[in-house]
Simulated assay, not measured.
Amino acid sequence: MSASGTSIDPAILERVAFNADGLVPAIIQQWDTLEVLMMGWMDAEAFRRTLTEGRVTFWSRSRQEYWRKGDTSGNVQYVKGAALDCDGDTLLVTVDQLGVACHTGTRTCFDGDQLAPVVGEAPSTAHDRSEAS
């Protein structure tokens, strides 16, 4: 990644659909295992820092300040890549997570109980495939 203080292409920022508070949700995913680790909020500056400094930076809505993952806990997230979804309203950041990602001390923030069972199965496409051949 680039050195601190550098800028990102303004065309990239123009694609981000920040909400009314100037924030975009950032889903953090382990680059090699594809585990979904956590979600945090970024404003344009946190987004810039994340892309140019190589460490994930969030905007804390409760503290109204920037926080870089791992500065106090040692559980650092090194950026491997980033992508916007098709609407530009969600960011996916792939990282190399050192230590745990969740503030509760678990590997991911999604280690909790399943909220609802999966109901039914996806419809079979075997019929559709056989007609296409």
Rank of each mutant, 00 (worst) to 15 (best):
W59C: 01
S60Q: 07
E35W: 01
A46L: 11
I12Y: 07
R49W: 03
R63L: 09
D32W: 15
W41S: 03
G22A: 07
T57D: 03
P10E: 13
I27V: 15
V24H: 10
A46P: 08
L37M: 01
D9F: 02
I28A: 10
R48D: 09
Q30W: 09
L37Y: 03
E65H: 06
P10V: 08
E14N: 13
R63E: 06
V16N: 01
A26C: 09
G54R: 07
L37T: 03
A17S: 13
D32F: 14
G5D: 05
M42W: 00
R61T: 06
W59Y: 12
R55V: 12
R55S: 14
A46D: 12
V56I: 08
I28E: 03
R55A: 14
G40E: 09
E35K: 10
I12T: 10
R55F: 11
V36G: 11
G54L: 12
F58Y: 14
A46V: 09
I8K: 09
Q64N: 14
I8N: 07
A20H: 15
M38L: 11
R63G: 08
R15C: 05
L51P: 02
L34Q: 15
E14Q: 12
A11G: 13
M42Y: 01
Y66N: 04
S7A: 08
Q29I: 06
G54H: 03
W59R: 02
T33F: 03
N19Q: 05
M1T: 14
P25L: 09
S60Y: 01
S4L: 10
R49P: 05
M1E: 12
V36R: 06
A3L: 14
L34D: 12
A46E: 09
Q30V: 12
P25R: 11
V24Q: 12
D32I: 13
E45P: 03
T50M: 10
G40Q: 05
M1P: 08
S62R: 00
L34T: 15
A44R: 12
T57L: 00
R55N: 08
M1F: 09
I12N: 01
L34F: 15
G22D: 14
I28Q: 01
E35M: 05
Y66G: 04
S4G: 11
L34R: 15
P10N: 09
I12Q: 04
G54N: 04
M42T: 01
W41N: 04
R48N: 11
